[in-house]
Amino acid sequence: MKEIAGIQFNKDASGKEQSVTIDLKKYGNEIQSFLMKIGAIETADTFEKRWSDAISGDELVSRVQTHIKTLPWKR
Score class of each variant (00 low, 15 high):
53 D>S: 09
39 G>Q: 02
55 I>R: 12
63 R>G: 02
8 Q>I: 14
26 K>Y: 09
13 A>F: 12
26 K>P: 00
23 D>Q: 07
27 Y>I: 00
35 L>P: 00
67 H>F: 14
30 E>Y: 14
50 R>A: 09
33 S>I: 06
74 K>M: 07
12 D>I: 03
6 G>I: 03
49 K>M: 10
27 Y>A: 00
56 S>E: 07
70 T>R: 06
59 E>R: 11
59 E>Q: 13
60 L>D: 00
57 G>P: 05
22 I>Q: 03
59 E>G: 02
42 E>S: 14
37 K>L: 10
11 K>L: 12
38 I>E: 01
12 D>K: 03
53 D>Q: 12
6 G>V: 03
19 S>T: 05
36 M>E: 13
26 K>R: 15
19 S>Q: 03
8 Q>C: 11
74 K>Q: 14
14 S>R: 11
64 V>N: 01
53 D>C: 03
54 A>D: 05
37 K>P: 01
3 E>D: 13
19 S>C: 05
40 A>S: 08
66 T>N: 01
58 D>H: 06
36 M>N: 07
50 R>P: 00
32 Q>A: 13
24 L>M: 15
63 R>I: 10
75 R>N: 06
65 Q>M: 10
41 I>V: 14
28 G>S: 04
63 R>Q: 12
37 K>N: 07
66 T>V: 08
39 G>L: 03
74 K>E: 07
18 Q>Y: 10
58 D>W: 02
42 E>G: 10
38 I>A: 00
39 G>M: 02
56 S>N: 01
68 I>M: 13
36 M>H: 12
74 K>D: 10
